[in-house]
């Protein structure tokens, strides 16, 4: 493993009696793209804020480029580009002005920032809206602007808290592409997301969080291999019959998950299982064979579906 850029040990954050982050350990290597995956309230954003030196941990240690963010907040933040979960753009200013002034907050020269702003307007595809007040942008445009803003200081580490929420599919793919290129340039990415496809596309390595704890860690492929089978067979018998047939199906596969509307059967070969089921004269209303995804890993680890 290359040198560790971020390293957390026993990281804990409490709000009063409530433990939002519960003693987690992780390392992020330079140039890596690291994902935090988990359902609502898992503690992802809280962890992000601690890394971003805008929240104080309750206990544990964390170092970013060898520095403690509580001791060296400004120096740590100078390395970071932060995209918070909720846009906090400057609503009194225009698109261009937002980018410009953010660069100035970092102490960058006017000349540099002005040049950078042009570049970022193109990046966010907001050239046509450059003189429009932020209030008048659509939700997706605001998101793109927030992401562009985080890049104004040319950060080594880009922190993205649910970056593509509110983006249309096309904008999402364009963003993924841009993030890929940043990664090629050596930028370290830290991403939280609810979207499995996003995590699989973007993350070299990820941790699955639930209730403040890390449940599993690895690359998307490793996680799927470890916590799920190669394929999944989804069958629906209608809500009444699902219960009846479940015990029979349980005997036929490695693992079974009964969801309210359907049954998931984990096996190496889905088609083969489907034939076997048909042979028993159990005819599902619908059936579908697919490859396992992080969604299944998640279900396995937490007993809950990621997107309800």
């Amino acid at each position: 493993m290359s040198e560790s850029l971020i390293s957390a040990r026993g990281l804990t954050k409490k709000f009063g009696d409530f433990t939002a982050v519960d003693g987690i350990d992780f390392d992020v290597a330079k140039g890596e793209s690291f994902g935090l995956l988990g359902p609502n309230g898992a503690g992802k954003s809280t962890t992000m804020r601690i890394i971003a030196a805008t929240s104080r941990r309750t206990s544990g240690t964390i170092s970013i480029l060898g520095r403690d963010p509580e001791e060296h907040g400004p120096q740590v933040r100078a390395h970071l580009g932060v995209v918070p979960q909720q846009d906090n753009l400057d609503t009194e200013l225009t698109v261009t002005e937002n980018l410009y002034i953010y660069g100035r907050y970092f102490g960058l020269s006017k000349k540099f920032v002005n040049k950078k702003v042009e570049e970022l307007l193109a990046f966010a595809q907001l050239e046509e809206k450059k003189d429009v007040k932020v209030e008048a942008l659509s939700g997706g445009m605001k998101r793109r602007l927030t992401i562009a803003r985080a890049l104004v200081s040319e950060p080594d580490i880009l922190m993205l808290d649910e970056p593509t929420t509110g983006l249309d599919p096309q904008a999402r793919h364009i963003l993924w592409d841009r993030l890929f290129r940043l990664k090629e340039d050596g930028v370290t990415l830290i991403i939280t997301t609810h979207f499995m496809d996003e995590a699989e596309q973007l993350c070299d390595r990820l941790v699955v969080m639930d209730k403040g704890k890390i449940m599993a860690e690895g690359s998307p492929a490793e996680l799927i291999k470890k916590y799920a089978t190669r394929e999944v067979l989804e069958v629906r018998f209608g809500s009444d019959r699902n219960k009846e047939v479940a015990p029979i199906l349980r005997e036929m596969c490695e693992r079974i998950e009964e969801l309210p509307d359907r049954i998931l059967l984990y096996v190496e070969d889905g088609e083969l299982l489907l034939e076997a089921i048909a042979a028993k004269k159990l005819h599902p209303n619908t059936s579908l064979v697919r490859r396992s995804s992080l969604e299944d890993v998640f279900l396995r680890l937490t007993g809950r579906s990621l997107i309800e």
């Binding site: 971003a52 805008t54 933040r77 970071l80 918070p84 906090n88 400057d90 907050y105």
Partner: peptide, 11 residues
Amino acid sequence: SKLYQGMLATP
């Protein structure tokens, strides 16, 4: 507007 939040995420 959460303006200060944005400012304080910088150095």
